[in-house]
Computed example of a mutant assay.
Amino acid sequence: MENAHALLELAGTLARQAGHAIMGVRAQGFSVTHKPDASPVTVADTIAEALITEGLLPTGIPIVAEEAAADGICPEPAPLFWLVDPLDGTKEFAKGRDEFCVCIGLVRGDTPLLGVLYLPVTGELFGGLVPERAAWKETSTGRHPISTRPAPPEGLHVLDSRSHAKPEALAKMLGGTKVAETRPMGSAMKFARVAEGAYDLAPRPGPTMEWDTAAGQAVLEAAGGRVTTLDGAPMRYGKPGYLNAGFIGWGR
């Protein structure tokens, strides 16, 4: 796609804007309400999604966004469509933790084409263009390429879900794999940490939604990793209801 780089840059700009808005809400204070599925939502979610959606509309590409979908506004999958989670890790955000991020992914066919993850607390922006296997991390020092790492000799460093941890399921998934460390972490920022080579594995035994994973999968796969279902099959997008089963984010 000729304009993939431009779309990636647009997504990055919008993710930053949304992240700044989220931090503004955090500084002012906020209340937490709950959607019909009992998941939490804050004004930060809605403000961030509005900013992102407004910025993506000129692309003419259909947008599937978490809060709009919760309100029943959810287009059918298209050959090319955006998947947006304006504030992934709302539970952690609501509890005052720093483990949340902005996720914007673009899906072509049934696989992620590109994506960005923005971590508002640290100001880190991660981007990835899957066909070119090009991933980067941008901070105040500039933009630098990132890649996954080979498994360390001491064993894998694993990122488990903080809010949805299932120790028995995780142990079964890992089997006899040599593990040096298991650390809990919230939100899709786990994809970023594996993509930059700080960790090796990010498993999730339970279900998620496609907007939770598309951007992170793009970044991780562009950095040399991969994301599969629990049985090792490729993660596909545009499924009924945009529902994922469990997944594993793999380093190199």
Rank of each mutant, 00 (worst) to 15 (best):
V32R: 08
I22W: 08
A27C: 02
Q17H: 11
T13F: 06
A18S: 13
L7C: 03
E9W: 03
E9K: 02
S39K: 05
V25E: 10
L7V: 07
A15Y: 04
L8H: 14
V25P: 01
A18D: 06
D37F: 08
T13H: 14
A18P: 07
A6G: 08
R26V: 00
G19E: 06
T33L: 12
G24V: 05
K35N: 07
V25T: 13
T13C: 11
L8R: 12
A18I: 03
V25G: 02
L14T: 09
A15S: 10
I22A: 10
R26A: 03
H34R: 12
M23C: 00
I22C: 11
L7G: 01
P36Y: 06
L14C: 05
L8E: 06
D37H: 06
L10Y: 05
A11G: 07
A27E: 15
S39Q: 03
T33K: 14
L10M: 14
L7A: 06
A6W: 02
M23N: 03
M23A: 12
R26H: 07
G24P: 03
H34G: 06
S31W: 09
S39N: 03
G24M: 04
Q28M: 13
R16Q: 10
A21H: 11
G12F: 11
I22F: 02
R26E: 11
I22N: 01
A27Q: 15
T33R: 11
T13L: 11
E9T: 10
R26D: 04
K35P: 02
R16N: 05
I22Q: 10
G29A: 12
R16M: 10
A18G: 13
H5I: 07
A21D: 15
G24F: 00
K35Y: 02
A21S: 15
H20C: 11
A6D: 13
P36D: 11
Q28R: 15
A38R: 15
H5V: 08
Q17P: 05
T13I: 02
E9L: 05
T13D: 13
E9A: 15
